[in-house]
Amino acid sequence: MEINFLALLLAALSTLVVGFIWYNPKVFGTIWMKETGINPEEGEKPNMIMIFGVSVLYAFFIAFILQTVTIHQFGALGLIGGDVATAKPSYTAFMADYGDAFRSFKHGALHGTMTGLFLALPVIGTNALYEKRSFKYTLVTGGFWIVCFAIMGGIICAMK
C-alpha cells in the first residue's frame, strides 16, 4: 500500500480553509479572540506566512497519522511488517478482496470525527485546564479540530 502524498497535502491544506471560516469574526473568531485575550489592534503584527506555513506542516503530520486510522488496509500492511515484497500470497488475496473496502469520504469522516473527539479534544481540554482557559475556549478550539479531523479523514480515505 502506497502513501498518497497528494491526499495528505490536500487534507493538510483543508485545515486552512476550515480555519478561515471557523475563526472568521462572524462565526467563532470573536469568541476565540475574547477567550484568548487577543486584540488584533494591539501589539505587533504576526508573521502570517510563517504561521500558515508551520500550521500546514503540523496539519501534514496529523494527516500522516490519520491515514492509519481511516484506511483499514494499513492494519493488514502492519501485520506483514510493512514490506509487501515479503508478504505471503494470502496478503495479496486479502488485498484483492478488500483493498477498497470502506474507502469513502463518509467512512473517513466518521473515523476522523471519532479521532478528533477522543484524541484532539481531550488534549486541548487538558491544556486549557492547566492554562486556566475557559470551557468556551475548549469548545471553540476543540470543535475546530474535530471538524478538521473529519474533513481530513474523509479526504484521506476517499482518495485512493
Rank of each mutant, 00 (worst) to 15 (best):
E131M: 03
G99R: 14
K34M: 08
Y58I: 11
A101K: 10
T141N: 07
F105Y: 04
F64A: 09
I3F: 06
P46F: 04
L139F: 13
V140N: 06
M159K: 01
G125E: 04
S134N: 13
G53T: 12
I49L: 14
G153K: 00
K26E: 00
R103D: 05
T36N: 10
S14H: 05
C157N: 14
H111F: 14
K132H: 10
A59Q: 03
L9H: 07
K106L: 10
A93N: 08
V84K: 15
D97Q: 14
L10K: 04
E35Y: 06
M152D: 08
S55P: 03
I31W: 11
W145G: 01
I80H: 09
I71R: 13
G75Q: 06
G75K: 06
M114N: 00
P46N: 07
S55N: 12
S55I: 01
T92H: 13
L110T: 13
L66D: 00
G19H: 11
T115N: 13
G108H: 13
M95K: 08
V69A: 13
L121C: 05
Y98V: 09
V147A: 14
V123A: 11
C148L: 07
M1P: 01
Y58T: 06
H107R: 06
T15G: 02
I151W: 07
D83R: 05
L77R: 10
I31P: 11
F52T: 03
I124L: 06
I49K: 08
M159Y: 10
G99H: 14
L9V: 13
H107P: 00
V17W: 07
E44G: 11
H72F: 07
Y98F: 14
F28L: 09
K132Y: 04
F74K: 07
F105I: 08
T141G: 00
G43H: 12
F135I: 11
R133D: 09
L117W: 05
H111G: 08
L119C: 14
K45G: 12
